[in-house]
Amino acid sequence: MNVFGHVAALYERERPAYPAGVADAIVAYHGSGPASVAEIGAGTGKGTEVLAAIGAPLICIEPDPRKAGLLKDKVPRAEVYTGTFEQWTPPPGGVGVLGCAMAWHWLDPHTRSSRARDALAPGGVLALFGHRYGFADARHAAAIRSALDSLDPALREPPADWMYHDVMASHMFTDARMQQFHRHLPLTRDPYLALVRTFGPFLTAPPQLRQRGLELLGRVVDDLGGTLTLDLRTTLTLARNGAGVMA
Rank of each mutant, 00 (worst) to 15 (best):
M1T: 14
G5I: 07
H6G: 09
V7E: 01
A8K: 01
Y11M: 07
E12D: 15
E14N: 11
E14P: 07
R15N: 03
A17Q: 12
Y18E: 04
Y18V: 00
Y18G: 06
Y18M: 00
G21I: 07
A23M: 05
D24S: 02
D24A: 08
D24F: 04
A25K: 07
A25P: 05
I26S: 06
I26D: 01
V27N: 01
A28W: 03
H30F: 13
H30D: 04
S32W: 09
G33I: 06
S36L: 01
A38C: 01
G41C: 05
A42E: 01
G43N: 09
G43I: 00
T44G: 09
K46W: 11
T48I: 01
T48V: 04
L51H: 00
A52V: 03
A56C: 12
P57Q: 11
L58E: 04
L58K: 00
I59Q: 14
C60N: 05
E62N: 04
P65N: 00
K67S: 15
A68F: 05
L71M: 14
L71E: 07
V75H: 06
A78F: 04
E79I: 10
E79P: 10
E79F: 12
Y81A: 04
T82M: 11
T82K: 07
T82E: 13
T82H: 08
F85Y: 09
E86P: 08
E86T: 12
W88A: 01
W88Q: 00
P91I: 13
V95H: 06
V95C: 11
L98M: 07
A101F: 02
H105N: 09
W106E: 10
D108R: 08
P109Q: 06
S113A: 15
S113N: 14
A116L: 09
P122L: 02
P122G: 07
L126V: 13
A127N: 03
G130N: 02
G130K: 01
F135W: 06
A138V: 14
H140N: 11
A142L: 12
R145G: 14
S146Q: 15
A147T: 07
D149Y: 08
D149M: 13
S150I: 01
S150G: 15
L151F: 05
A154W: 12
M163L: 11
Y164W: 12
H165K: 14
H165I: 03
H171C: 14
T174K: 13
A176K: 03
R177W: 08
R177H: 06
Q179C: 09
Q180K: 11
F181N: 06
H182W: 14
R183S: 12
R183F: 12
H184A: 12
P186T: 07
T188D: 08
D190V: 14
L193N: 04
A194D: 15
L195F: 02
R197K: 15
T198M: 08
L203T: 00
R210G: 10
G213P: 09
L217T: 04
L217Y: 09
G218V: 07
V220M: 12
V220Q: 09
D223V: 10
L224K: 00
G226E: 06
G226W: 01
T229N: 02
D231Q: 15
D231A: 15
L232P: 04
L232S: 10
L232W: 03
R233F: 11
T234P: 10
L236S: 10
L236W: 02
T237M: 08
T237P: 08
R240D: 08
R240K: 14
R240P: 05
N241E: 12
G242A: 10
G242D: 11
A243W: 10
G244Y: 10
V245D: 03
V245R: 11
A247H: 13
